[in-house]
Simulated assay, not measured.
Amino acid sequence: MVKIGNIELGEFPLLLAPMEDVSDPPFRRLCKMHGADMLYSEFISSEGLIRDAIKSKMKLDIFDYERPVGIQIFGGDEEAMAMSAKIVETVQPDVLDINFGCPVKKVVTKGAGAGVLKDVDLMIRLTKAVIDNTNLPVTVKTRLGWDDTSINIDEVAERLQDVGVQALSIHGRTRAQLYKGEADWTHIARVKENPRITMPIFGNGDVDSPEKALEYRNKYGVDGIMIGRAAIGYPWIFNEIKHFFETGEHLEKPTIEDRVEAAKNHLTWSTQWKGERLGIVEMRRHYTNYFKGIPHFKEYRTQLVTNDNLDELYSVFDEILANFKDATFS
C-alpha cells in the first residue's frame, strides 16, 4: 500500500499531474471519474496568493469528490512560500505539493520551478519554509536537473526527504530539455533503488499507453506513475492502464458517444465553475484532443472553437453524435 502521510493511495497509484491551464476542477473531475487515484491542482504562484490575486485564489477551489487532492504552489522566496503554505492549509487539501520542475521561462527567471535546480540549498530552504508552516503532508515534483551536465536528482531526493518531504514525483527530463526528446527513467529508478530513500517515488514523463505504463512499472520499480499530457482530452487512460495491469487486455476504446459525453460534461462543469463566457473560451483548447483521429471533422471543430453560445454548442455536440455514430478513430 502506497501512502503519503496517512493517505492511502492503493498498491500502485496513478496520479494526475499538475498542469497549468489544464488541471482545474472540471478536468480533475473527469479524470477522477475515469480512474485517477490522486489529483493535483494547477500550480499556484505563492506571490499571487499573497497578493490576493483572483486567478491564484480560484485555483484553491477543491471539492470532496476529488479527494485525495493536492494543491501545488511555486515560488522562489522563503517568506512568500511560508505564507502560502498557511493560506493553502485553510482550504484543507490532502497534500501540499511544491513545484520545482516547471521549465517555463517566466517561472524559471523568477528563481522558481525548475530554476531552483541550480541552487539545491535554496530548494531545501524553500521546502523547509513550507513544511514548518503547515500540518499537511508536503510532497515535491521536480526534474532530473538543470541540464545533462548537472543531473542532481540523487542529492535532491535525499535532501528533500531529510527535511521532511513525504513523496517525490520526478519528471524524467532536465529543465534544458523542456518537453523535447525522451524522458530518461533510469535516473528515477536509481533514486527509487537508493537504500536511503523510504518515501514513495512517482515517475512522470512519456507514459501514454497501458503497455508503456506496465513496462515502466516493471522496469523502473517506481511506486506509482504520474500522467500529464496523455490525459488531456483522454481521461480514459487511467482506467485503461488499470484494466491492462489486471487482465493484460485492453478496454474498449471510447466511442463517439463517450467522447461527446466527456466533452459536454467538461464544458458544462467549466461554465458552472468559471462562468459561461470564460468556461466556453477556455474549453476550446480541449476539443481537438477529445475528437482526435476522426476523419472529416474540421467543420465541427471550427464550430466548437468559434461559437460563443452554450445552447448552440450543445447542438453541435448533437450533430456530431448523429453524423459520426459509425466513426472509427485512427
Rank of each mutant, 00 (worst) to 15 (best):
187 H>A: 13
196 R>F: 11
219 K>M: 13
177 Q>M: 08
205 G>T: 01
169 S>W: 00
151 I>D: 03
223 D>A: 15
214 L>Y: 03
203 G>N: 02
152 N>V: 11
159 R>W: 05
155 E>I: 08
227 I>M: 07
181 G>L: 04
148 D>H: 14
219 K>C: 00
217 R>Q: 11
150 S>N: 15
215 E>D: 10
170 I>E: 02
156 V>E: 06
159 R>G: 04
147 D>Y: 09
204 N>Q: 11
175 R>L: 09
205 G>A: 03
139 T>L: 05
168 L>F: 13
138 V>M: 07
162 D>T: 12
226 M>I: 10
133 N>G: 13
147 D>R: 02
221 G>D: 07
179 Y>W: 06
212 K>T: 10
224 G>C: 00
181 G>F: 01
184 D>W: 08
158 E>P: 02
183 A>E: 02
223 D>C: 13
176 A>P: 03
217 R>K: 15
176 A>C: 10
152 N>P: 08
212 K>A: 05
202 F>S: 10
166 Q>F: 01
140 V>G: 07
183 A>D: 00
205 G>K: 00
204 N>I: 12
158 E>T: 11
214 L>K: 12
165 V>E: 08
189 A>P: 08
189 A>Y: 01
160 L>G: 10
157 A>F: 13
152 N>T: 11
162 D>M: 13
142 T>Y: 00
211 E>V: 12
161 Q>E: 15
217 R>A: 05
144 L>K: 00
173 R>V: 02
143 R>N: 06
161 Q>S: 13
169 S>A: 15
164 G>F: 13
154 D>M: 15
140 V>M: 03
226 M>E: 12
214 L>P: 05
217 R>I: 02
187 H>Y: 14
153 I>V: 15
216 Y>M: 07
152 N>Q: 08
210 P>K: 06
202 F>D: 00
144 L>F: 05
211 E>N: 15
216 Y>F: 14
174 T>Q: 01
192 K>T: 08
208 D>A: 15
149 T>V: 04
158 E>C: 11
175 R>F: 05
212 K>F: 09
188 I>F: 05
207 V>Y: 04
163 V>F: 14
142 T>M: 02
165 V>C: 12
212 K>H: 10
193 E>F: 07
160 L>K: 12
161 Q>M: 14
158 E>H: 06
134 T>M: 12
164 G>S: 13
215 E>K: 06
146 W>H: 05
151 I>E: 02
181 G>P: 00
172 G>D: 04
133 N>Y: 09
220 Y>G: 04
188 I>H: 02
156 V>S: 15
197 I>Y: 01
165 V>T: 08
183 A>V: 03
185 W>N: 13
176 A>Q: 12
180 K>C: 11
135 N>T: 15
164 G>R: 06
187 H>G: 05
176 A>I: 00
183 A>K: 10
167 A>L: 11
187 H>D: 04
156 V>T: 14
157 A>N: 01
191 V>R: 00
165 V>I: 13
177 Q>A: 12
212 K>P: 00
162 D>V: 03
138 V>T: 09
186 T>N: 12
218 N>T: 04
215 E>N: 11
136 L>V: 06
213 A>Y: 03
221 G>P: 03
150 S>V: 07
215 E>I: 09
200 P>S: 14
153 I>S: 04
163 V>R: 02
189 A>R: 14
141 K>V: 04
196 R>P: 06
188 I>S: 03
174 T>K: 04
201 I>V: 15
171 H>P: 01
197 I>K: 15
